[in-house]
Design a protein around this nucleic acid. Structure first.
Lengths: 341, 341
DNA sequence: TTTGACATCCAAAACGTTTTGGATTAAGAT
DNA sequence: ATCTTAATCCAAAACGTTTTGGATGTCAAA
């Protein structure tokens, strides 16, 4: 049977209080007894029961995160990279990660209620903000510490702590890049409309076109599911319906990889025939063929900084800056192709 | 303030016991009072405190997993895929995942003691068995439920529940495949010697060579760190010291991808000049250039089955089969190149 | 009228910990 | 001899839940 404080107390002849305080190193207990108790503790292999501690201290030293349980998402570099950033920084602060895989919907909200209302974590980290995001509404109503990767949509109120990348600027840079290479017919594969960052990326597209004096054509824009499949079908549709398109911008790298498959599946060359760009700069972007032009977003680092933000929130420390907007950088690679004539 | 049972009791006029049993749906409490209590509960937004429940029930409905905190491991497809398999199956059974990122060593063992001794999880899932693995020794000594991806080394005792793939057969298949293409000089990049599966893979290499009547040359074998960098340096070393080598087998896909970079960095062609193969069949293997010949190991599915195994163990159900050895399958892709003349 | 069965409720214990607010003793100061 | 001070210890409460083992009241059967 696993020893508890009571066992140490009986074996040592001291009270539970004294044993507890001896182990915690209080000056309350004489060196001799402390040593004796410590010795008994190691002898019995005592390890404090976390639940007892957490209940008493009202602190779990755990950060919660609910990730999409989509079957395809095991190839979802974005979430895994974010999680690794979160996990590593958390572990540096001696926090653990409580993770629940749920697909968007009522079940997901239940998971939040269990984790937050059930006080299983001291704070939550969210990703992929949605329009009028019910998760954020809930967390705010509970006055629970949380930090988000991604601000609210442009027409909504962003009164919560977040880190985001200026994706409007990012997409604009991609458009400018393609325009500078001579492209005039540029397709765009947007994320699903219910995601908050979709409008920013769309706005960046519009901005880029306008600066170049290119007229916006709504049929050059489709939506995809942010996975490879979405990029594949989006690109097929774009190219079938608008054969004059020479460049495709996908709003994340996974879709861009799917776009490359679609193009190559039609027997055309990525870069030379159709230029492709993505967004995120996940590891595979550098290793794809051809290598993928993209907008670098430091996902791993964002995960780390979200943890620091959240821990300040949890501890009630004043936050110097709880709404951070990073400027992304353009990574030009082979999928851009060369200059058009 | 978050409402607790006591608040519901006071507001409803019933005792804590009755409130608790009403919410749990016992036939103990009259329909009228149950309804009244339920109504108050939703009105106040009651959510039971998990810690209280866990402490009382001595059950956390949580599965623990400690993953490597290596900085480079955010690109570690193996662990993320395993985690996703574990996470999704766990969530199907309404279990959550407690994750701690730790690098191998004393800190890692401390994390195990905190999680296991502290009773923060009902069972653990391990991966990458090591020689005389201290984690397994510890878990056995604690008689704690656990399931492992990967059995013990051939010369050690495997008296614990695991799922593994017959990697000796896998590597042998790769050797046979390359031999059938006309290769006689095949390099091998092994995992670090302290990992349990290293010997199996080495044995498969020997077996394949012997069947083909090729003499074993120790200088054709090097060790790598299971990351891209390991494959890169291993391959460079192999090719520099043994220019006659025409094929390289890396013991996982990540190293194989690094191997391809090394070969291409020397201005040579993967497949045509030097054939390359990996092990695992991670998603990137299918999208690399050229696509990677490899041994398919159903990592995601193994994660799922480990959860089922672990849950049986936790619940004390009899396990039909607690030591599972899967047969891997050869995936021939472009990095094999064609037949030699 | 008594008995038994049933429906409905609840006080208290238990899970394992930390902390509060003293109690006790011994030594030193007056 | 009395008062302070310091050193060492501990009983009990609290964190929030579930379950045990009754208690109480009602109603029908004997």
């Amino acid at each position: 049977m696993k020893p508890k404080l009571k066992d140490l107390a009986e074996k040592s002849g001291y009270s539970i209080t004294t044993v507890s305080r001896a182990l915690a190193g209080y000056s309350d207990v004489s060196p001799k007894t402390r040593e004796r108790i410590l010795q008994i503790a190691t002898q019995l292999g005592y390890e404090p029961n976390s639940l007892g501690q957490q209940l008493r201290l009202q602190e779990t030293r755990t950060i919660g995160m609910i990730i999409p349980a989509n079957d395809e998402s095991f190839s979802n570099d974005f979430f895994t990279q974010l999680m690794m950033g979160v996990g590593n920084m958390a572990s540096l602060h001696r926090y653990d990660l409580l993770i629940s895989a749920q697909s968007t919907g009522e079940e997901e909200m239940q998971a939040y209620r269990r984790m937050v209302g059930g006080r299983r974590a001291d704070g939550m980290i969210l990703a992929r903000t949605r329009r009028s995001d019910p998760r954020i509404v809930y967390l705010k109503s509970q006055q629970y510490p949380f930090a988000v990767s991604g601000r609210a949509a442009p027409d909504e109120q962003t009164d919560f702590p977040y880190i985001d990348v200026d994706s409007q600027a990012g997409i604009r840079m991609l458009v400018e890049h393609f325009v500078s290479l001579g492209h005039r017919h540029i397709g765009l594969i947007l994320p699903p409309p219910e995601l908050a960052f979709t409008d920013y990326r769309h706005a960046g597209y519009l901005e880029g076109l306008e600066k170049a004096g290119i007229i916006y054509r709504p049929d050059y824009v489709v939506h995809g599911n942010l996975l490879r499949s979405g990029g594949y079908y989006g690109t097929s549709q774009l190219l079938d319906e608008n054969p004059e398109i020479t460049a495709v911008i996908a709003c994340n790298d996974l879709m861009a990889l799917g776009a490359m498959s679609a193009i190559q599946g039609q027997g055309r060359r990525v870069g030379l025939d159709i230029a492709v760009a993505g967004f995120d700069d996940i590891p595979s972007a550098e290793y794809s063929h051809p290598t993928l032009t993209t907008i670098r977003q430091p996902i791993y680092e964002i995960g780390q900084r979200l943890v620091n933000m959240l821990l300040s929130l949890i501890k009630g420390h004043p936050l110097e800056d709880n709404q951070i907007l990073l400027t992304p950088t353009l990574m030009v690679r082979d999928s851009s192709g060369g200059k058009r004539v």
